[in-house]
Nucleic acid binder design. Structure first.
Lengths: 270, 270
DNA sequence: TAGTGGTCTAGACCACAAG
DNA sequence: TTGTGGTCTAGACCACTAC
């Protein structure tokens, strides 16, 4: 099924509260395949997202109203709304009652993801490497037990790693995991990131609580990361939960502040 | 309208992949007021959220199925689904096809909000105060112009503030705003936070891009914040956008790492 | 096989914004 | 007044899970 969607372009102008102004209409090719196993609303939202990404739907442009769009595609209005809503949730579209649905103006990227240092480095073309400094089972200290929700003194897995990029140390990672959660080989830990291994083991990561701070490096930390003594370090502690709410990982990480910073996109909850 | 909702309690046990186990049933009081202007799905989601918050719905417990719940409350299934979905989006519930809807196990708090240092301090009972060090209009440097999406050299508002708690400096805040966006009195800036003033001026904050890092304090910065020279500082840069996608604020902040850290909750996008 | 959530329809009425 | 999104209904069929 295929439809030509007229898109009303909007040219913004300097003003405290800009009003939408309709300038022209651009045809937008949309279609859904009812024989596909992909849900119809998802097909539509992906096409709209691609159109926004590729600039076919320009920032500020108005989508046609939902009823007409549904009619053109042969879908019901709730289905079209579901597609649009998913993009509103991603921050790509804004709805205004009595006005319409507009493409957001800014270069909004992705909402914050549960970031993996390994993936971040790889995406930045930094060729990450990992040295496993220690991989043991230890009794949980009071702090670790509280974070992981296990009994104090019960056995937990402890992994200490040094993450490098281009052969230079970037961060020191210390992680604790409940025993029995997954099999972990030291070789695997040197080849990829912890989150990938957990996902591959069938663990569905759901949420995490993070604390980011800074402090001066101790002599041992400075030595480990190749920084001068007293250099500023970026610190991150994180507890990660799976979809049943169990804590599946507690980590204490220190990053060379001269080499790394956290960047993320926030959406204001409405 | 009132209904008794039976809740199947779930007792978890140590296991790599825990299965739900039904132990007992707890009645849950739910009702909706059809004469209220508050949407029905919202009334329901608020009551469910309160029940989770207060421990009436315990972590791991199963909600009854959607059809039955709809019948008990005299609502349609899509309305009940909308209520449940909003809590799933908040990370409070998890749905599993063929199983049911469960309360998440962990102490998941709020998803990440666009944080305001002023509000954070106030919520922590720290009695925040602000010193306005400068409040001027200046030509935009290339960096500020790029961040705010205005022409280089065009006039922008510049605000420099020192944020204190209990009379102690906590952070140095330097912000740039497009001119004409809102009226700002120095007195207002000393009484509350910038975000509150922007919201009060009718600006709908929508998203922000943040970078968090660390570095050693310069002598001037150390002096300003009452830290020794070379002390580690936590730095944050932020561009905030409104719902039309315009950049409405660009800020460069430095925090005393000994006094402040960022804490936030992440939900893994699914 | 039975029960669950996932998806979808074809309507309806209302609240809000704009002209 | 007109048009938009916001909410709601009463069904339907399907996919997945557990027994």
């Amino acid at each position: 099924m295929t439809a030509q969607l007229p898109v009303n372009q909007h040219r913004s102008y300097a003003r405290a509260v800009p009003k939408p102004e309709v300038d022209q209409t651009v045809p937008l090719q949309l279609s859904v395949d009812r024989n596909s196993p992909v849900p119809l609303y998802f097909q539509l939202s992906q096409q709209l997202e691609a159109a926004i990404e590729h600039g076919v739907l320009t920032p500020g442009s108005l989508l046609g109203n939902e009823i007409e769009l549904a009619g053109r595609l042969g879908l019901s209005r709730p289905t079209v709304r579901q597609a649009i809503q998913s993009l509103v949730d991603k921050g790509l579209l804004v709805r205004r009652r009595g006005v319409g649905t507009q493409v957001v103006h800014s270069q909004v990227k992705r909402p914050l993801e549960l970031s993996s240092l390994y993936d971040d480095l790889e995406a930045a073309g930094q060729r990450p490497a990992t040295q496993v400094l220690a991989h043991t089972h230890v009794p949980a200290t009071a702090e670790v037990a509280a974070r992981l929700g296990v009994g104090e003194g019960s056995e937990v897995r402890c992994v200490e790693r040094l993450r490098l990029a281009h052969g230079e140390p970037m961060a020191y990672l210390c992680n604790f995991l409940p025993t029995g959660l997954l099999e972990l080989e030291t070789g695997q830990l040197e080849a990829t990131g912890l989150y990938r291994l957990m996902r591959a083991a069938g663990i569905t990561l759901h949420s995490a609580r993070q604390t980011v701070g800074a402090r001066a490096a101790t002599p041992a930390e400075a030595e480990r990361l190749g920084e001068p003594a007293g250099a500023p370090l970026l610190t991150m502690q994180r507890i990660t939960y799976d979809d049943t709410g169990r804590a599946v990982e507690y980590g204490t990480h220190t990053y060379r502040a001269s080499r790394y910073s956290f960047e993320f996109q926030l959406l204001v909850r409405s």
